[in-house]
Amino acid sequence: MLKHFHTLNGHQNPIYALANAPEKNTFFSAGNDKGVVKWSLETMGFVKVLVPVQSSVYALHCFGNLLFIAQRSGSILVFNLDEEKVIATLSFHQKGVFDLKTISHKNELISTGEDGMLAVWSLADFSLLYHFKVIPQTVRVIALSKDQKQMALGGKDGIIRIYNSEDYSLLHQLNSHTLPITSLQYAPTGDYLISGSRDAQLKIWSLPDYELINSIAAHMFSIYAIAFHPTQPYYATCSQDKGIKIWGSQDFRLYKILSLEKNTEGHSHSINKLIWSTDGAYLISTGDDRQVMVWKFN
């Protein structure tokens, strides 16, 4: 199903962020280094340092020909991939920005992080359109529903808040996790939301009412990412416990564990981020061991 294919070396410090590039078979990584790195899945090698950064990068997000780079300093760099230069710096957050998403039909970027604020930016001129306080603590993660009409925010208080993304009104508060929310994803099928937490649990919330329908003791420690395969009925999770797990997205069964402790190839430290390549041929993982690992799906 999934086996280790290649390990990409080059980062000198922990890596926190991954994003697929618009260009086929390429992706970006960044973390506690001084730059965002571009990699090729065709050559399985380093391409170049895309842009230098002044502080740690906590999130990367591509939209069209733009790469948004969220930093520990609170600033967000807007990098034009065609022009290969930074075209704007978004300054509002007073602390680290942990997640970014775009609401394409509104032409808006949303950002959140350690200051507990949600900021809404215009993609037309990068002006700040709106902002509000979600909680006094960190908001770690954002997820958008399939139609982008609803937005889920995961907070340090262990509560998932669901907002209407048209007017940012609060619709639901989901209370089941006992520790901070660290990962959120809506299923590509549009029928449920899945959440992961420092409590090592996965929770499945059915739509449209967000009823809790399943709780899974998924990992030993914090679940830092959930990634749905682009075409097949599977999703992957990764954790501070150094393991990657592959689950059925319809039956929620565990199909595969990738971990040094299970005598497979694996990471030696916390795994912070996972993405599938856009064609679904590879799973890419990274974390505190400074390695970018590529896993082949078949």
Rank of each mutant, 00 (worst) to 15 (best):
A88R: 10
P188G: 05
V47D: 13
S206V: 06
L123F: 02
S91Y: 13
I142V: 03
K95N: 12
V139I: 05
I135E: 09
S165D: 06
K256A: 08
K38L: 10
T112M: 11
P52D: 07
S239E: 00
W295V: 00
P136L: 11
K146N: 12
P52C: 14
S259W: 06
G116H: 05
M220W: 08
V78D: 04
F228A: 00
F297W: 11
H11R: 15
I204M: 00
T26A: 11
S169M: 05
I160S: 01
I204Y: 00
I226L: 04
Q150I: 07
K133S: 11
E108Y: 00
T102M: 13
S73H: 14
R253T: 08
K296Q: 15
N263V: 00
Y186R: 00
S56D: 12
S183M: 15
S176R: 08
N9D: 08
I69Y: 06
S277M: 12
A88L: 09
I244V: 14
S222V: 15
K245N: 08
M44V: 02
S111W: 10
Q291A: 06
F79L: 00
D199V: 03
P230C: 03
H11D: 10
W247R: 01
K48E: 10
G45A: 15
A200C: 12
P233K: 11
D125N: 04
F221E: 08
Q173S: 12
N298D: 15
R140T: 02
A70D: 05
G190D: 15
A119Q: 09
K296L: 12
G248N: 15
L174Q: 09
D289Y: 03
L100G: 04
Y282V: 07
E211H: 15
D199R: 12
V141F: 12
M1F: 14
Y16F: 15
K203R: 15
S40W: 01
A281H: 07
M117K: 03
N263K: 04
K34S: 12
S222Y: 09
D191Q: 13
H105K: 10
L2V: 14
T189Q: 09
W121S: 06
G155I: 03
K95D: 09
I160M: 02
I15S: 10
E84H: 01
A59L: 12
G248L: 13
S165R: 13
D99I: 00
M44D: 05
Y282L: 07
S56G: 14
I194N: 00
G31M: 07
L144V: 05
E114D: 04
L77Q: 05
